[in-house]
């Protein structure tokens, strides 16, 4: 009486046909769920108004030699130092083989006297000291991160401590003689 409701006996051909249907359905379902999930995931990415304020313009003219300013770009501090001749020559005289993350000072600046870099330690994201005259500048005259003791030199390169990389250089351009646009 109840036999009509039970599925047909599992013949071999029946199995392969059913397997195919199951795998095809499962694959399509997975693709569909993935496509449906994407809009939900993408809402968490930066919105268009956030992207629209992603550039920062900086007037460099008031910054004297030896001074440094910190500006905000994309919510992060950007260190701009008007380097002295001494700092530049120090940075350029360092042999490459003593550097943790070897990079020429010339590759880190567009104009030698202006060093522009993101002021976020490449170790775990603290903001290194060295912008204010009263700040410790570390053993190499650049920046010193107080969180875990990373020392950066006058080119912003990591010299000692746990940080793996040099301070990051943001994309920027000189839009005028003494004006840059970061981002």
């Amino acid at each position: 009486m109840a036999t009509t409701a039970t599925p047909p006996e599992h013949a071999d051909e029946e199995d392969t046909r059913r397997d195919f249907l199951l795998i095809a359905t499962g694959t399509l379902t997975a693709v569909g769920v993935g496509l449906a999930a994407w809009p939900f995931i993408d809402t968490l990415n930066p919105a268009r108004d956030t992207l629209a304020v992603a550039t920062t313009g900086v007037d460099l003219s008031p910054v004297e030699v030896g001074q440094a300013i910190t500006v905000v770009w994309q919510g992060k501090p950007v260190f701009i130092r008007h380097r002295t001749e001494k700092e530049i020559s120090e940075a350029r005289s360092v042999p490459m083989d003593v550097l943790v993350d070897p990079q020429m000072d010339q590759d880190r600046v567009q104009k030698p006297e202006w060093l522009v870099q993101i002021g976020v330690c490449t170790h775990l994201g603290c903001i290194p000291l060295g912008q204010k005259p009263s700040d410790p500048k570390g053993d190499y005259g650049g920046w010193f991160c107080p969180c875990h003791g990373s020392h950066y030199d006058t080119a912003g390169r990591i010299r000692r401590g746990p940080a793996p990389k040099n301070l990051e250089i943001p994309p920027y351009d000189y839009v005028e003689e003494s004006r840059i646009l970061i981002g």
Partner: peptide, 27 residues
């Protein structure tokens, strides 16, 4: 995550969801 429950910002935050947030209009 994008709505602001404030009388001065609620309406604008919903319009921001519609225009600026990725797929905000869909949500």
């Amino acid at each position: 995550m994008n709505y602001v429950p404030h009388v001065d910002h609620a309406f604008e935050s919903v319009e921001r969801i519609m225009r600026d947030v990725n797929y905000g209009w869909l949500m």
